[in-house]
């Protein structure tokens, strides 16, 4: 349990993506014009990152390593995430049109930033 806690702390502060590793700068700089947009991009990045890590980790561990085709990881993880983004957009459209209008521009952005986690 403490190990998990440390992992979260390290990821959030020591290896902070924006501040120390300068990853995901595009959407960070372009979409932080006002607070509302920033919060929206943060939420979409959070959703995509969490869910896609959950999905891509077993794929990477059990499928790619077993079959020794880890050079395909980039394409496969991207596909998984693209599918995920479409799915989240679809669900949002069903739940509320208002929400969908807000997020339809931003979720593809998060796709372009969220990839690094799974690769590293």
């Amino acid at each position: 349990m403490t190990k998990l806690f440390y992992a979260a702390i390290i990821a959030a502060f020591v290896n902070n993506l924006v501040l120390t590793q300068s990853l995901g700068m595009d959407s960070f700089i372009r979409n932080s014009k006002d607070l509302a947009t920033s919060v929206r991009i943060a939420v979409s990045v959070l959703i995509v990152t969490v869910v896609s890590s959950l999905i891509t980790w077993p794929i990477g561990r059990y499928v790619l390593d077993k079959l020794q085709i880890s050079f395909l990881s980039t394409i496969l993880f991207l596909l998984v995430e693209a599918a995920l983004v479409w799915f989240v957009l679809f669900v949002m459209k069903k739940i509320s049109v208002h929400l969908y209008d807000h997020y339809k521009e931003l979720l593809p952005w998060s796709l372009l930033t969220a990839q690094f986690l799974e690769l590293s």
Binding site: L23, T74, L78, L111, L112, Q115, L119
Partner: peptide, 8 residues
């Protein structure tokens, strides 16, 4: 890591 990241 930045080489594969070119894809995005």
């Amino acid at each position: 890591i930045f080489i594969p990241l070119t894809a995005v």
